[in-house]
Design a protein around this nucleic acid. Sequence first.
RNA 1: GGGCCGGUAGCUCAGGUGGUUAGAGCGUACGCCUGAUAAGCGUAAGGUCGGAGGUUCGAGUCCUCCUCGGCCCA
Length: 965
Amino acid sequence: MSEQRDYKDTVFLPKTDFPMKAGLPQKEPGILARWEEADLYARIREARKGREQFILHDGPPYANGDMHIGHALNHILKDMVCRTQTLLGKDAPYVPGWDCHGLPIEWKVEEQYRKKKKNKDEVPAKEFRAECRAYAQHWVDTQREQLKRLGVCGNWDKPYLTMDFEAEATIVAELLKFAESGQLYRGAKPVMWSPVEKTALAEAEVEYEDIVSTQIDVAFEITDSPIESLIGAYAVIWTTTPWTIPVNQALAYGPDVKYHHYRAHDGRRFLIAVDLLEAFFARTGLGPVAEDPEGDITLSEYSLGTYHGEELAGTVARHPMHALGGFFADPRPFLPGDFVTTDSGTGLVHMAPDHGEDDFDLCKAHGIGPKFVVEADGRYREDWLWLPRTDERSMSVIHPKFNAPEGPVCQDLHETGALLAASADYKHSYPHSWRSKAKVIFRCTPQWFVPMDKVIDRDTPRCAAEAEIRAAQGDGETLRQTAMRALSATRFVPEKGRNRIGSMVEGRPDWVLSRQRAWGVPITLFVDRKTGEYLCDPEVNTRIVTAIHHGGVDAWDEENAQALLGNAYDAEDYERVTDILDVWFDSGSTHAFVLESGRWPELTRPADYAGPPADLYLEGSDQHRGWFQSSLLESCGTRGRAPYKAVLTHGFTMDSKGMKMSKSLGNTVSPLDVMRDYGADIIRLWALSVDYTEDHRIGPEILKGVADQYRKLRNTFRYMLGALSDFNDAERLPVTEMPELERYMLVLVGQLDATLRQAVDAFDFNAYVRALSDFCNEDLSAFYFDIRKDCLYCDAPHDPRRRSYRAVLDTLFHALVRYAAPVVVYTAEEVWSTRYPAGDSVHLLEWPDLPSAEADMDKWTQLRSLREKVNEAIEPLRREKTVRSGLEAQVTVPAAAVPAGTANAALTELFITSTVTCSDEGEMRVEPTTHHKCGRCWRHLPDVKEDGTLCGRCEDALATVEDAG
RNA sequence: GGGCCGGUAGCUCAGGUGGUUAGAGCGUACGCCUGAUAAGCGUAAGGUCGGAGGUUCGAGUCCUCCUCGGCCCA
């Protein structure tokens, strides 16, 4: 065998500096720095100025702690939305924001105090708030850097903070709109209250612990009933909080519970739920017979009647302490309560609206209000009829002695004969204060509310603002009705969100606005000490807003009261409300502050624009109860419509087994770690690959899969970059002069384009990423690139086939880099700058304009399926090493399987074999080639004289190259 | 405990109005190539569609119950 010439240096191999290995964690920060230096966000705004707007309004995350996986997912989705809209040519700005007020921050600052042995109560409020402000600012700055690192493109230099003075002023102004239109009232509501700390507690400040309580059974004598036989019988209630009996105001029954009226062995008649009789007998010994050792009593002998709960409506009892007169002598009505069960107790529940949520709601619905007789320290009011304050009895209601079977309540009940049983042996879990570890009670305190079902009164308008709001809201519509109407005009992605928020709005109680806290926006109301009405004077309100605007929330203090009230009022006559606003009101007002203030020109709508200022709100599904709803109610109450046109919700990120992440389980995945180990583009690709509409998972295996997917995408770009090295626009050919394969590929990329556009419209990003990825894998790498490898490497540079291929590659490159840019933002930039080192950012580009092309798609579908069959047929020969690659195979296919008019040469090219011939046989045949192998292109062709010499095509190609050289 | 949502190959996902042997990509295994080379190509294996009942000639798709998980509320 003669020495063969090595033709390697005559083959046009891909040439690129673009590395196969990404090294994203090292590379990304540099790319980010370049964007910042070039002020890319501002340049994109400039480039899209005047275009159709797409306003995504950022829901403010809480400024507390590092970015976690939920933040990452949420912001990647937001970034994807803005970037795809921008790519489509719209002006889609992104102004990030933070929620800065509220309890968790207060806590952290208090915690720091405790470490320094400082007492919060000794620190002036202004100083305390200043520390809260500083604490929030610290986390805003931290999260801002972390989110930037994720590749999120936005106005990071000017985010919105709910603690900005302007924001605080806007929030107050929004509150005053509610006030001026009569949509505020002062009511009461049971809240968790710590008698030790003398303060209301939030749910998060409470922990549950197992304790042993006194359980008592108390008889309430029935004084009237539609069921006459019940009169004179005793309704029995069971409770573990004896201290609430002196404020009992009603009894609740379960409408679907069955009750028994029977005569006990002592002659008294009792009313009890059927299912709970046995337990009741065990506690009280009040069975129909004194002793029942055999347990074989038949109640029917002693039964005086069985009643369905509903039949008890209209029944009235009297309080065991009715002899005290006054409050205690009033009748105690039976009320229907859905919450009444037969899990424990007697099936009848005593109602003290002062001290229970169910109690409060049920009583309120029947016109019975709380009495406010337990004071902040947990003691009964001195003048309360029941209990003269003797030393012995004057103690906090949480005191064990107070509730003991020997305690004052049980004693008194016992004396009246109403106490059927009392024992200090009931184990259950009960809320305690996080800080003092002391027991907590429910206690009614005055709170400010926004009514859900009040029609703004037409006859007595308070202020000019009211007229405006009336006009915006439907005529005679309640806030709930306005909100429901607004929801029906909103697009939900996914659609099921509508149902979720809808049922919440439908069933929610009035909005409690007030919190007894320090770090927040004040409820800036002056209440007339005589009438209890809040002052509603637009001039005063204007002064208040202006003061907050200049001085922040600190401006609402006692010293300023007279100045704010002005000359028309005397501060002495008014109580300055010191509650602060629920932080949900803060965030519910961000649309006003961020979208309508003009402070962010990129968010400002044209003067003639009407309708919701935001195109989209995009948050986790927990925000159905949170921000989506608070924004809806705030906007409906002040503008009569939702602040958004569409709402997109995403699920939560679970660990690799689908379990919720928690620090204690040690299964958390930090986006900061993922960025450090894999890079931001990997976590972005992950977020955009999963089905965000549901809960989804992340874990090592999943990330490995995402990294693999990334590598394929990256290599696709690397190949294109290499194949397009030295590409010259002059190489291009008109589409109509291109080979069919090229035209087919152009149609395919056109289909991909349509799929991607549709995915963008539907915010269906996993479909977007999958379509892109599948196209790279199936249509490019395994099909087009593989087939055209020979053409790229070996055709002469001027060959129309090669020119066509490179032209299509160039089209593909420009399309794909744009499609990929919103997803892998860093890599797309790296790809783009590798090809155009002096060029501008890839993120300034617009959606690709594809050349129109036509191809016989049915024919190509047939050819590709035939190609699969050929591969299957070659496989056995490869297995037995008869041939090693397809290039050594000679294939005979049934002519019937080949689309009409397809040349054998075309099939050979397509199947990457030595030759393909058609025959009339029904079976496909594969055999090893008899042709020699070209030394340059390695194909086995008839015109190669011996192995290692050249085929005609390569000879010509070499000749032209040498001529040119 | 209540409301709402979900459970399709190892992983990520497709599977209008119920209709032939449940699909894709990745990963895996095996093989090829060594001129995209920590790359590329090919073939193959993998699922009792969370479980149990039911409706139907026929159910991943409809109904009921159970189970596991999630969000919100209590």
